[in-house]
Nucleic acid binder design. Structure first.
Length: 232
DNA sequence: ACCCAGGTGGCCC
DNA sequence: GGGCCACATGGG
């Protein structure tokens, strides 16, 4: 079975099991970007409170973020954790947007994927995953987003030699059609899989990928099934 | 009282 | 260029 067929097989199983996820949950590209920064290493439920606070304050837009003080911003996003560094990150993005694009988000997002990625990575607080998320979900351009779940799944299913960010991204992008909806749904489904299965007991009782895990029979611990997300 | 969330930047070697 | 660490709230 080719890599492409395996990746599509996995996608089909996840889609059948969970259904379309409809990511990213945001009303505007700007809200998507703010949410992407706020959700770094934090559960989405916490991010929603912070976003709600920003909306209520009327500053969930480039001009609002530019004008609010970093201290006030930190208070508003407190539920999203790491609020001091994240306030700095949000201010850094807003300042970047005005300094380089006159506050025009669409102009930034209209860059080609690679130049856009370079621009985003130059901003304080935007690393590979956040940059790729913005490209895929805010700019709507085909780049594959990799997160911790994705790396673990690639590793557990032995889908490629390496399982770091670059290897995982290359795996999907070199072996799948560059289709926006496919990439958007695939990443969302991998996250959904991770959320549902990562630490629940019993491991993988209903994991839609259990049958694909090559090392199931070697799993020590007495036959409670196998969790592809659990590292040894 | 733990453990961990849809990471990133700063150090250190 | 990889391996730690700080950052910090809320839910299980």
């Amino acid at each position: 079975m080719s890599i492409t067929a395996r990746l599509l097989n996995i996608y089909g199983r996840l889609l059948d099991h969970y259904g379309p996820q409809g990511w990213w949950p945001a009303e505007t590209p700007f809200e998507m970007i703010v949410g992407a920064i706020l959700t770094q290493a934090v559960s989405w439920a916490n991010v929603e409170r912070a976003l709600s606070n920003l909306k209520a304050e009327g500053i969930l837009n480039p001009e609002g973020l530019r004008r609010v003080s970093e201290e006030r911003l930190a208070e508003l996003i407190r539920p999203a954790a790491y609020y001091n560094v994240k306030a700095r990150k949000l201010k850094a993005f807003a300042e970047f947007l005005y300094r380089r694009y006159d506050g025009d988000l669409q102009r930034l997002l209209s860059l080609e994927p690679l130049p856009l990625r370079q621009e985003l990575l130059s901003i304080y607080g935007i690393g590979p995953e956040t940059a790729d998320s913005i490209i895929l979900y805010a700019a709507g351009k085909p780049i594959f987003v990799v997160d911790a779940y994705t790396c673990r799944i690639v590793r557990r299913l032995e889908l490629s030699v390496g399982s770091d960010y670059r290897a995982a991204q290359a795996l999907f992008m070199d072996n799948l059609p560059h289709d926006i909806t496919l990439f958007q749904e695939y990443h969302a489904l991998l996250v959904r899989l991770g959320k549902e299965n990562c630490r629940r007991e019993p491991h993988c009782a209903d994991c839609p990928l259990a049958v694909l895990c090559p090392t199931t029979q070697f799993d020590a611990g007495g036959g409670m099934g196998y969790n592809i997300h659990k590292d040894h």
